[in-house]
Design a protein around this nucleic acid. Structure first.
Lengths: 254, 254
DNA sequence: AGAAGGACCAGTGGTCCGTA
DNA sequence: AGAAGGACCAGTGGTCCGTA
């Protein structure tokens, strides 16, 4: 499988941010990213969790710009960790700087699939109820397995983007190229993933649940509420239009 | 369909029981079934809910033994209503007295199926998530539709009995005849339904979920925890036995 | 401002146990 | 005692919003 190869696409290391509970501590109140490890003697910093550094399963690191602060155990140990934010990358592109690319995003969905299969195997062995979808139980298992970078809000947020990637990789790739070229941010790209999905649904009788269920990798994900609503609204719109105009003027509601 | 014909199998009317909140009110403290409508002047009776009399969809009543107390609107209106308890009946038999038979029990499962289909149709129309099982939502819908005699604990309690009825009606009928003949109560019959189900599962690779899902009427019901556990325990037992004895001494764990 | 994710909340599956 | 079902509870799907 492709697990290890794709893991190399993630920027190594979690983002490291100081936790400040006193608003006035930093003076400017803005981002204090660069203060970590060298900062002054602010009080009120607290360690919230033990540091866990588990993003990459391999140790290769050809992206050693600057001193990755969280590599050295130094500093006062008071940082809160998050994954690097996503940026729009084209297929095969590795994100530079403290960013993660979209190949890595999609790879997280594959990892969840693997965790689901493990949970299913355990359930079968024990004669317990066997989940067919990525449930809370699976997210809990992933976390317990060390994949602390996987969480439910993130995965749910981008499900429809992954759906487009699964259902029409060409269209998905084209969208990525276009949005990267125009310098759009991840949020704009994410929004733009809805429209092609709705068009796919239109072609297949508007049954987005059937479309998800028919795809082996997509079937384990709950259909996001928003894409379901868009399909429904667009179908109503299409039906109304076609009943008046004979179907010539259908226009997406976006 | 058979809805109306089968409804006639239910004993008409709900059980009517006085609600006593003061333990000492009745003197004997026992059942006060016959006191309704003619009772003395006990205080502390309270109406808990409006009376709803909706068990039968037809009005035919060829079982008019005694005066059905809850037919007349008389009395002080302080009764709490329940369905008549089930008794073991043979196929086609109508329960006598204030009892309901097993054909009626199984018919409730078919009614739930109908309610599920209605809920599904509404969900599809609205573009909402569409349940594939009899969920809380379906029970709520049934109640709202006037089927107050359908409730979750009851339906869940007898699911495995219905499963046997669906999967091997001959075996189910034979069991009913045997338990009626021996004068066993419903609880004993219910317990006895587990064993033939486990034997069916054994024949089909122990996958009780697959067995439920493969059957069109059964697939809408969650597999009861207990039958899942029995299948698992029995499979482990069978595997252990066969690995030692070559499979000649398998014996059910009941 | 754009974005990651802890944590909350309404409604679920499951069934106990107060009731008669 | 045998049995029906109101009502509770732990853990769910869903996503908001406090955080940086």
């Amino acid at each position: 499988d492709t697990t290890n190869a794709l893991d190399a696409l993630s920027q190594e290391g979690l983002s490291v941010e100081p936790v400040q509970h006193e608003k006035e501590a930093g003076g400017s109140g803005g981002r204090t990213w660069e203060m970590v490890g060298g900062g002054g003697g602010e009080k009120q910093r607290r360690r919230k969790k033990g540091r866990s550094r588990i993003v990459s399963l391999e140790e290769e690191d050809d992206e050693t710009e600057g001193a990755e602060e969280n590599e050295s155990g130094g500093g006062c140990g008071s940082e809160r960790q998050r994954e690097h934010p996503f940026i729009v990358t084209v297929p095969g592109e590795v994100a530079r700087g403290k960013k993660n690319g979209l190949d890595y995003l999609f790879h997280l969905y594959e990892q969840c699939h693997d965790f689901l299969i493990q949970v299913q195997n355990i359930a079968k062995e024990r004669g317990e109820k066997c989940p067919t979808k990525v449930t809370n139980q699976v997210f809990r298992f992933a976390k317990k397995s060390g994949a602390s970078y996987i969480n439910k809000p993130k995965m749910r947020h981008y499900v429809h983007c992954y759906a487009l990637h699964c259902l029409d990789e060409e269209a998905s790739n084209a969208l990525r190229r276009s949005f990267k070229e125009r310098g759009e941010n991840v949020g704009a790209w994410r929004q733009a993933c809805y429209k092609p999905l709705v068009i796919i649904a239109a072609r297949q009788g508007w049954d987005i649940d059937a479309i998800f269920n028919a795809h082996p990798r997509l079937s384990i994900w709950y259909v996001p509420t928003k894409i379901r609503q868009l399909c429904h609204a667009e179908r109503s719109n299409a039906t109304a239009s076609s009943s008046v105009t004979g179907g010539a003027t259908d226009h997406l509601l976006f």
